[in-house]
Design a protein around this nucleic acid. Sequence first.
DNA 1: ATGAAAGCGCTAACAC
DNA 2: GTGTTAGCGCTTTCAT
Lengths: 356, 356
Amino acid sequence: MTSRRSTAANGPIALRLQDVAERAGVSLATASRSLSGRDGVSETVAARVRAVAQEMGYIANVHARSLAGGATASIGLLVHEIGDPYFAEIATGVMRVATREGLTVQVCHTGRDPGQELAQLRSLVANRVGGIVVAGSGFVDPEMQAEAKRDLAAYRASGGRVAVIGRHHLGADAVLPDNVGGGRSATEHVLDLGHTRIAFVAGSRQLTTVADRLTGAAEALAARGIDPASVPIVESAFTRQGGKDAAAQVLAEHPGTTAVVALNDDMAIGVLSHLRSRGVRVPDDVSVVGFDDIDVAGDLAPSLTTIRLPMVEMGEMALSLALKEPSSRPRRRSTDHELVVRDSTAPPPRDGGSPA
Amino acid sequence: MTSRRSTAANGPIALRLQDVAERAGVSLATASRSLSGRDGVSETVAARVRAVAQEMGYIANVHARSLAGGATASIGLLVHEIGDPYFAEIATGVMRVATREGLTVQVCHTGRDPGQELAQLRSLVANRVGGIVVAGSGFVDPEMQAEAKRDLAAYRASGGRVAVIGRHHLGADAVLPDNVGGGRSATEHVLDLGHTRIAFVAGSRQLTTVADRLTGAAEALAARGIDPASVPIVESAFTRQGGKDAAAQVLAEHPGTTAVVALNDDMAIGVLSHLRSRGVRVPDDVSVVGFDDIDVAGDLAPSLTTIRLPMVEMGEMALSLALKEPSSRPRRRSTDHELVVRDSTAPPPRDGGSPA
DNA sequence: ATGAAAGCGCTAACAC
DNA sequence: GTGTTAGCGCTTTCAT
């Protein structure tokens, strides 16, 4: 007597643990214990059950398992742009820790749309993942931000764990990249080379990442007696295309600029590309600095001088924080940064430079 | 009288639909109907229930929903390397369709490890996702391949839908990039420019992608009366670093080479980088061709001549196939390709070239 | 239009 | 060491 419900009419249905148990001649409970490696079963029986399950191609239903109170072996990772090297490296770090802990990672992609960000967050909560790592800058939309904060609070109240990368107002454990220090170092570098006609190429200042990097830049400028307000900041999309657009604007509105500090490597690549298309030589006419030190930075022509952030480690730290026992107060872990000097920067040209 | 089980001792527990129903003064069934927008409820009541749920911050448990037979609004995407631009663009296409259909995407990353590939596939099946898109070349390990095929067959037998991108032996619907045609076009291009000393830089030939692209190359060579066996093929990792290693080998073992055809853009970037570090000018001394036309290809220095594959569309097609009603026989959709000529290719140098 | 009750597949007490 | 049974939170007949 079997309890299999498959009929010709409604088609086959996925195997249940019950099916495995029957075939192995044991009870449901014994089968469950055997497969989840808990004790209370003789090793002989357990081995047989496992063999039967394997042979039948049984794959447990995580929904049932999770509902019944079994451990949720999955965590969520929220990134802005899958494929953006910055997030890809963070993801690598998160996955590394996850794999070590036997966890599955659900990667959610927001496309930088606050609505999507909220929706993805909800979907993660709905999936009752064991923890959530939020990478990328905070919410631009204050209303979305409030909703997200509330959802996250409820999630944590019910035992969920959250860690964020970057400055957020979510009240969770956080990994804080050294954006201020990096912005300072990048700026000091061009200042040390002797540049005086500098332009910054940035993403939206609503992004905390951008705001922090600019803060560091302003500090470096002020320390040398330069009024930060006198230095142009061109705001554009925080992407390669944004870098191209911004470079065009720098050339048009700030001729004579000898150094461009881009606030991420992707924008820097766009800047290099546009300058090349306009016949401006780097670093002979104009120096370019990036930020992040993504993988490809060293393989560009010219190779890119940039600020290295330990992105893989940041991902590792974030998931590790999320996996730790919750503390009463949010924890913070700060990273360091490193100036990596390559071929895209040099002293300004003698004549003061005429990039266009 | 409430049924809430939260106690000071075991801490709060996530909200249940039951809690919402009680607060709204309706039955569980009515609450369920209200939130899932099914009829059988007066609009007045439904609106109130929705308002209460929203106010309480209720988020439905997908595990319970799925177990109870509700629709699984999530699909799985299996890629080799998150962050590899090839897969990132495919993912963009998949997500575009998913968003349109109101589906959530679970991205799984195999790191090109066959063991991981199998594990991730299982996890997707265990999650009872509505469909699975497998991107990237097939399994290298025949045993893993067999296991994967079996799991996938069981998954489909129980109603799951599968689509693959690239040539596989999985018996599922497939999107087939024009790798053979692209390999032919890339090779014809350098032949047309007058090159006779050509080297191919490839990933493992076990990858069907690599094998197919080489097949096209061999066809083009043969059509011009050149014995394909006489043209060097340097095999290395299918990555940027692999491209560097392969370029070094070409320089060392095949001096006099005037054209390098890399079998993907990532390798081509590595080739460009290594040639530059060795003082070899591109395209003056050596021409370089890539494959895929990833986003950054046009922004490199020199910009890369390559074969464009419609990767975003491939992702869209794959998910669309997976979402269609199953057919008795596997469906196939072939893509086209396009040769994009940029600055990295030119006729060979007069003297025959001396790249080192 | 609304409610009561029976599962979905699994784990975790609790018996034996 | 093994089996029985009561849920987990939800959707869905089936009554009302």
